[in-house]
Write a protein that binds this DNA or RNA. Structure first.
Lengths: 95, 95
DNA sequence: TAAAGTAGTTTATATTATAAACCAAATGAA
DNA sequence: TTCATTTGGTTTATAATATAAACTACTTTA
């Protein structure tokens, strides 16, 4: 089959954007990701949970002074999955 | 915003595969597309309808001898949309 | 003539994406 | 002080989607 299946967890606009951000930085916090992606907080919260449950990212929640702070970091599993997704979707993009 | 919105009509594995096939051929029939994509007939039928309704492809149904034959062809609108989608998703893929 | 194959379409269902509503604490203005 | 607003999220509800299963209609083959 010329078309490899695309990882459904990554074939989602917002989750792909989150992974794309995280792959090029050490870590990023919730607010920054929200700004960069333009997502609503609710949507972002849900999608971060999914990426976290899959082990694609790790999430740390702490308090900075008096404000909560959620920090995300891509895992090796996540890097592998992202690279695999990129490889697979390329087949669809250049015919 | 670094991430452009992805055309939801094209951000679907099967519809993207169909468009990817059609962009490099004059036309293709239902059975061929089904084989190449590995899709079920029902799913393919639905997705072809959606691409057709959006004007991304044109669909001709005729009889070849006694068998029905559905032939699909990408339109200029479809070519433009596909190229735009490719341009936009590239932003997500190379960070 | 009954079973199986071809070329699809329609319908039902399970999953998804997304927004709306909500919560708790902190800050700001009157 | 007290009431509204902002911050940083989470939870819940809903609308949209993808997909498979069931079905139709006709043809071929045993």
């Amino acid at each position: 089959m010329p078309f490899e299946a695309l990882d459904p967890l990554l074939h989602s606009q917002l989750r792909l954007a989150v992974m794309s951000l995280l792959i090029s930085v050490e870590s990023a916090d919730f607010v920054y990701i929200k700004e960069q992606t333009g997502a609503t907080a609710g949507n972002l919260s849900v999608q971060i949970d999914k990426l976290s449950s899959a082990g694609y990212i790790s999430v740390e929640k702490k308090f900075e002074g008096k404000k909560p702070k959620t920090t995300c970091k891509i895992t090796q599993t996540g890097v592998d999955a992202f690279e695999n997704y990129v490889k697979n979707i390329q087949q669809y993009l250049k015919p």
